[in-house]
Design a protein around this nucleic acid. Structure first.
Length: 821
RNA sequence: GCGGACGUGGCGAAAUUGGCAGACGCGCCAGACUUAGGAUCUGGUGCCGAAAGGCGUGCGGGUUCAAGUCCCUCCGUCCGCACCA
């Protein structure tokens, strides 16, 4: 149908008006369901590779389908990228905007323990419920591409990728002290320990030695930092990644210790002349090895035992330093030849550097605190600071430092390392806080690790053709106190044959962590049904990278780091075409309850999205979440503000009565200005994620239209197009009522004209000595002299300038005149 | 302790990045129409003041013709990390 068709055969406004009997209220319940069905039936948002168009891949973090259903926080992110996706579509891009479910995880398993309902059953129900809720909000997801990490078709490839990691030597088994949650009975990655407590249940985490599958993410540490510089990530995300990886450049130095070498890592080799003692972590190998040489063995053993019992939290919560001297032994400073005392103390960590330090109390606050307690010498080797008060950690010129004297920090460091290398007792060294990724979980509801253990052949990967290795059905989901996975009880499944020798072997009973499936899901979206490969080269080449990825700040250290690593590994193997998965990453703020607290079931302040959709409609809900405040900041829910947006949608609906054909195109300069201003503002603000002010711009425009007697059709059509990414159902409905038979979401995005958007007459503020005294109306870009004369002619100005001398007049074009007297 | 973000009406917030502070919305006040329903419409609304006018962006200072915006000191809030040598 063409534009002409819409007023067919009618020539008076009144007559035209009669053709649409508007209900008094905007009936969103019927309207929204109607359009959702049409979009679904017509597969409006389904995409395929189309080389005639530029592609755009918009991604949001897929949810864990919890039993509580969708949280009002989820749609904030989904709506934001839905708006971006819809706008890009209207701008001619081939847009991939997919959704799926990260469906392995602890809650489903805990629920199973409590109720006996199998995780597979509850997960399927929850996914169904989430899908219904998401569809009720009118997102433009391509549902044909939905993925589900707990389906065998999906985790087949997660397992396959694990095998690739194993074959490339990046997955290995190691007995290490892991973070153990005694309540969940599960090993946790460092990333899952928050302030010494289990991220999930809050119980205090203890250390426990266990054999675990590890992934050598540290091999990628440098690249994970360095490659950030070419990415369009918000600064806070980059900073968090960098801090988490924690690169420190320094040196390793060997100190003579008995007839052995005691190696330390330091970032300040320049302060080596100020070393007055050394400290080992209580777990350091030398303590055990040389125990019989120490004079105070009983005291040392008692200290080690005490330290072992302390959790990390206890160790760090108490920053008063404790320790024991290893009496009877000395170390030798390689720079000075001086003999120094050696201590053990739990302020030195076993897992970082070499587990031993050289202590420079004059220039390190921790060493300083320790030296004060144990009355050890404090020798300053840099000028500046006062060691009577505190350690001096700043820069200065070296003193008491032999050949380093007179050098500053940087020069001193270079020289000190150079000297150590020449004399064979040291070398430059880079250390990272990042540890290898603990990849085993003693749990049921996760991807089985496709490895078997044979007495003869050791750990063996299962054959690729046997993938997926399906998770067996069990009915008892409790791990035992030894921390063995529930899978250990499925003996039929556990006992198998060795792929190498054919003899008896046992399957790995630990499963993968939740982070595994989410490390590559964005790749699967490009080709979700493929059962030959995880995604075809063609699909990956066309769709990757993700152009814009939005998610929560809570995932920017863990998930983002893991998935970047995982992707880089696949890139190195030649399976994906790009070395980074996400070109742009943004983050949204949380939605809090009205009192500013987090929403939670226990607090009873949870807002249910279903109720909002039922009572106000999806469009109002979407608009409200965008209007609530700056997108990247936390915002509190408010029912009253929601009403304001509801009024707005009703107004848009009501305006239809005034749309009239004889005024098809706006002619007055004011009308044109209002329209083009709105186009430019909304367009720009969507790109910048300033959704709250984009909605404001729409409101301003609607207020303008409300004040018109009749609305030229084009002005209303532009409103609908600009509104359609935010409130797609309403826009679609009114578009259809205008007489169009094709969908508004397939129309092209309006072009704003900057010239028409600007006024020919500008209001210029007039100031005297920086204080506002009045305003004048001038033609746009009027020359300074005209503006000056007009300003001076103002009553208010004339009165004040007559009494004093004008020193200077500053004219800022189209903005302001400031008269200095 | 370290790192980051931030502090603007009664409230959520805007401010073209140095140029009329408070757009837009909530709430509130007044009026209209109605008085069966979170109603709708019109106008007003930073503070003090009857008015002229004055004062206003956490506090104090500075730069500038001009500061919410830039610089320095302090205070406060939130979020990360937390003995990483």
């Amino acid at each position: 149908m063409t534009a002409q068709a819409r007023y067919n055969g009618r020539d008076s406004f009144e007559e035209w008006q009669k053709t649409w009997q508007l209900e008094d209220r905007y009936n969103f319940r019927t309207i929204e369901k109607k359009w959702q069905k049409i979009w679904e039936d017509e597969k409006t948002y389904h995409v395929e590779i189309d080389r005639s168009k530029p592609k755009f891949y918009a991604l949001v973090e897929f949810p864990y389908p919890s039993g509580q259903g969708l949280h009002v926080g989820h749609p904030r992110s989904y709506t934001a990228l839905d708006i971006i996706a819809r706008k890009k579509r209207m701008q001619g891009f081939n847009v991939l905007y997919p959704m799926g479910f990260d469906s392995f995880g602890l809650p489903a398993e805990n629920y199973a323990v409590k109720t006996g309902i199998h995780p597979a059953v509850s997960t399927a129900q929850n996914i169904e419920n989430y899908t219904r809720q998401l569809k009720s909000l009118g997102f433009s997801f391509d549902w044909d591409r939905a993925v589900n990490t707990s389906s065998p078709e999906y985790y087949k490839w997660t397992q396959w990728m694990f095998l690739e990691l194993y074959k490339h030597g990046l997955a290995y088994k190691d007995k290490i002290a892991i973070n153990w949650c005694p309540a969940c009975k599960v090993g946790l990655a460092n990333e899952e320990v928050v302030g010494g407590h289990c991220e999930r249940c809050g119980a205090e985490v203890v250390r426990k030695n266990k054999e675990q599958w590890m992934i050598a993410i540290t091999k990628y540490a440098d690249r994970l930092i360095d490659d950030l510089k070419d990415l369009d990530f918000i600064e806070s995300v980059k900073t968090q990644q960098i801090n988490w990886i924690g690169r420190s450049e320094g040196a390793e130095l060997d100190f003579a210790f008995e007839d052995d070498k005691l190696t330390v890592f330091t970032t300040r080799p320049d302060t080596a002349f100020g070393v007055t003692y050394m400290v080992l972590a209580p777990e350091h190998a030398f303590v055990e090895k040389y125990m019989n040489r120490f004079e105070n063995q009983a005291e040392i053993k008692a200290y080690i035992e005490k330290a072992a019992k302390k959790s990390d939290l206890e160790r760090t919560a108490d920053d008063s330093k404790t320790g024991v001297e290893l009496k009877g032994v000395k170390a030798k400073n390689p720079y000075t030849g001086e003999e120094i005392a050696v201590f053990i103390s739990d302020y030195v960590l076993t897992g970082y550097g070499t587990g031993a330090i050289m202590a420079v109390p004059a220039h390190d606050s921790r060493d300083y605190a320790f030296a004060k307690i144990f009355n050890l010498p404090i020798v300053p080797v840099l000028e500046g600071g006062d060691i009577e008060i505190e350690a001096f950690e700043g820069d200065g010129l070296h003193i008491n430092s032999g050949f380093l004297n007179g050098l500053n920090k940087t020069d001193g460091m270079n020289k000190a390392i150079e000297y150590a290398v020449q004399h064979g007792f040291g070398r430059p060294k880079v250390n990272f806080k990042l540890r290898d990724w603990v990849f085993s979980r003693q749990r049921y509801w996760g991807e089985p690790i496709p490895m078997v253990y044979c007495e003869k052949c050791g750990w063996q990967p299962i054959d690729e053709k046997d993938l997926p290795l399906k998770l067996p059905m069990v009915s008892d989901f409790l791990p035992n106190d030894e921390g063995e996975s529930p899978l250990a009880k499925a003996t039929d499944w556990v006992n198998t044959t060795c792929p190498k020798c054919g003899g008896h072997a046992r399957r790995e009973t630990d499963v993968m962590p939740n982070w595994a499936g989410s490390s590559w899901y964005f790749l699967r979206y490009t080709d979700p049904k493929n059962d030959e490969v995880f995604a075809s080269k063609e699909a990956l080449k066309y769709w990757m990278n993700v152009d814009w990825y939005n998610g929560g700040m809570e995932h920017v250290t863990l998930h983002l780091l893991y998935s970047r690593f995982w992707h880089k590994f696949l890139y190195d193997c030649g399976y994906v075409p790009t070395s980074e998965p996400y070109q742009k990453r943004t983050a949204h703020g949380m939605i809090l309850a009205s009192n500013g607290e987090k929403m939670s079931k226990s607090r009873g302040n949870v807002v249910n999205p279903d109720e909002i959709v039922e009572n106000y409609g999806a469009d109002t809900f979407r608009l409200y979440e965008m209007f609530i405040g700056p997108f990247d900041q936390a915002a509190s829910w408010s029912d009253e503000s929601l009403m304001g947006v509801y009024r707005f949608t009703s107004k848009v609906y009501g305006l239809f009565k005034k749309v009239y054909k004889n005024e098809d195109v706006p002619t007055s300069a004011d009308d044109l200005r209002a329209m083009h201003r709105c186009i430019l503002d909304v367009t720009e603000r969507i790109d910048q994620m300033k959704f709250n002010t984009a909605v404001s711009a729409l409101m301003t425009y609607v207020n303008y239209l409300s004040n018109m007697k009749m609305i030229p059709a084009q002005m209303y059509e532009v409103l609908l197009k600009l509104l359609s990414p935010f409130a797609p159902h309403l826009a679609e409905e009114m578009w259809a009522r205008l007489g169009y038979s094709d969908l508004i979401v397939l129309q092209s995005w309006p072009e704003g004209d900057k010239k028409l958007a600007d006024s020919e007459v500008v209001t210029i503020a007039v100031q005297i000595n920086g204080k506002m005294r009045g305003t004048i109306e001038c033609a746009k870009d009027a020359d300074d002299e005209t503006v000056k004369q007009k300003a001076l002619a103002l009553d208010n100005v004339a009165r004040q300038t007559s009494q004093s001398e004008i020193k200077k007049i500053i004219v800022v074009k189209n903005r302001i005149v400031n008269i200095v007297v």
